[in-house]
Design a protein around this nucleic acid. Sequence first.
DNA 1: TTTTTTAAGGTTGGTTTAAGGTTGACCCTC
DNA 2: GAGGGTCAACCTTAAACCAACCTTAAAAAA
Lengths: 225, 225
Amino acid sequence: MKLLIIEDDKYLSDSICETTKEMFEAEQAFDGEEGLFLAEQNIFDVIILDIMLPSMNGYEVLSNLRKQNITTPVIMLTAKDGIDDKIQGFKVGADDYLVKPFHREELLLRLEAMVRRLGNLLKENVITFKDLKLNIKNKTAELDGELLKLNGKQFDLLEYLINNKNAILTKEQIFDRIWGFESDTSMTVVEVYASNLRKNLKKHGYDQFIKTYRGLGYMLADSGD
Amino acid sequence: MKLLIIEDDKYLSDSICETTKEMFEAEQAFDGEEGLFLAEQNIFDVIILDIMLPSMNGYEVLSNLRKQNITTPVIMLTAKDGIDDKIQGFKVGADDYLVKPFHREELLLRLEAMVRRLGNLLKENVITFKDLKLNIKNKTAELDGELLKLNGKQFDLLEYLINNKNAILTKEQIFDRIWGFESDTSMTVVEVYASNLRKNLKKHGYDQFIKTYRGLGYMLADSGD
DNA sequence: TTTTTTAAGGTTGGTTTAAGGTTGACCCTC
DNA sequence: GAGGGTCAACCTTAAACCAACCTTAAAAAA
């Protein structure tokens, strides 16, 4: 799962990275504009957002996101514990709140709660699509009692598709999610991986559910016609 | 949706393009005359108009447009924040105002507000014509529970017609909107696409609503006689 | 070794062109 | 004003073209 940390204190940001690295793969932004830009890609599972930030404050970032209908859960950080901040934070759509300084475990608890609330239970390591079961923890996939042999990025792609089934994902989104923004790999790898994934699902006829929308992207569809 | 940016500062213009590229497809004009010419095509959803411009200033461009009964919403930009400018801007028909320098998110907010005011909610991904439903996000069209197979530009054409129903659109407008100004394709493609679209709608009898007005253009009419 | 990336050629299907057919406005003649 | 001719605008079809995508395999990296 991917976490975005928007926090200008580099030391704190790194420390959050460290704390959460068992659960999340983290990206960092060090000012509001950069954070908003990254968050707009809509490829994160959770965002940790500081309030006091250079170039654009946390409230602005958040309300901007929500206006764009981006509903990624957000945990806001602030040095102040005033009730006003909380009110304003929740009003613009924050899902949780954390007062600095906080304990490592407290952050972890809230992150877990956040993700659990989403339905993506952290303890629940299995996601499914029809009879296909993915075990997130072991990175194994199973269909009809048979173990599919999916390598790392193939698994990631399938997981991303399942978590967004019946919605078109552009090649850019897939690339940003799996390869990362600053990767200098060519975007055509996405096609290669789509092809390989289909090949691996073909034996069970599940390749039909991965559809290509020419000029738009890919979609995992419930109905395969 | 299409946005026209009339701004002589190339750097700023490009930056607006970048900022809005998730929402809009932008065209750029770098002086007043060019801007007026493009705006007269009447194919844009919003116009961003600078006041200080070579060859013709923003006020002239705007009042010229309004005299021609072109009501595309306009957001004016200016380096000055004098109240006089605002008054003059609104008097000639600007819909909103932005003082340079401005923040990326301020522009986005105003654009959103503008479009929302239009009734074209950004969040609203579905537009309809009678029993025909277009999902803008998936680029899919549905009629009587059946999915229509429309390729990219056919979909764009239908979308444009629905957004302008009961109004005649000239072939030039359609061409400029869908193929773009500088396309070197021949204008007769419009006829081909009108034909193909009618063929695809014929099964449901909806071809009758696309009417040809010889020498004028096409119109999607509520009443099919 | 296994996984990831690049490169290259093949395939598909949307887009454009071209060519011939149809329609309707306009004019002329009776 | 009825009939007919003419022409430009428009319709329709189908083939040619081209960019997006697929697939494979070899090279590079881990």
